[in-house]
């Protein structure tokens, strides 16, 4: 391991680190939004939209991000839709993540026991009130572990952005290897960079899961 190589390449990695973080945050927020909307469409069984949501989830979950990115970046121009690599990447991540988040939310709603729902009905709550005061608040809590797992998953998936040459972390490392061949050092930096993002985040999310769980269910 040559430390000069590492210190010299540090600025590039810091830049890649920033791009990975930025695109992850935008992608994850977008995926949460899409996922929340889709899960509500499914919960309320909104006719038409619901079938559309099912088709979307099916396609999104059963194809790799890499193919989704190629399709958006290289395929869509055939339809006259030209997007930059970065925008394609973010759209791809939202397209992929939206379905995972939707299933996490839905799983949370479904975790609410039948007896909770009947207790609400017995009080005369309408479907909308039942959702607003009983199912959604508890369902969101129940979906936190799955949402957290998706956050980690999506950050890792940004490494695939390298195939459309977005200069995030993985792309930075591969470019440097291509130029200077110091693969040991660059790969070491790459792994460390992901560890810096993901280890504290995964610890924080575990802590959050416990807290949220305790706050709502007391165990």
């Amino acid at each position: 391991m040559n430390w000069t190589v590492i210190t010299q390449s540090l600025p590039q990695f810091v830049a890649g680190f920033g791009i990975t973080l930025k695109l992850s945050v935008i992608g994850i927020l977008g995926a949460l939004l899409v996922g929340a909307i889709i899960s509500l469409v499914q919960y309320f069984r909104i006719p038409g939209l619901r079938q559309l949501a099912t088709v979307y989830i099916e396609i999104s979950r059963n194809t790799p991000l890499l193919v989704q990115l190629f399709f958006i970046f290289y395929g869509l121009p055939g339809l006259g839709v030209k997007l930059s690599a970065t925008v394609s990447g973010v759209f791809g991540l939202i397209f992929l993540g939206g379905s995972y988040m939707a299933e996490a939310f839905t799983g949370g709603y479904n975790a609410i026991s039948k007896s909770q729902i009947e207790s609400g009905r017995a009080l005369g709550l309408t479907d909308l009130q039942l959702a607003r005061y009983v199912v959604l608040p508890q369902g969101l809590t129940a979906s936190v572990p799955a949402l957290a797992a998706n956050v980690i998953f999506l950050i890792k998936e940004t490494s695939i952005f390298t195939v459309i040459a977005i200069p995030e972390l993985t792309n930075t490392a591969l470019d440097l290897i291509g130029l200077y061949y110091n693969s040991n050092e660059y790969l070491f930096e790459l792994v460390v960079a992901y560890a810096i993002i993901l280890i504290p985040l995964s610890l924080a999310l575990t802590w959050l899961e416990r807290r949220v769980r305790y706050a709502s269910f007391g165990n």
């Binding site: 007896s115 909770q116 009947e118 207790s119 017995a122 608040p137 508890q138 809590t141 709502s216 269910f217």
Partner: peptide
């Protein structure tokens, strides 16, 4: 009014 076997108070309230 109805009360059930599983004393289902809403845990979020």
């Amino acid at each position: 009014g109805m009360v059930f076997q599983s004393y289902d108070l809403f845990p979020n309230l």
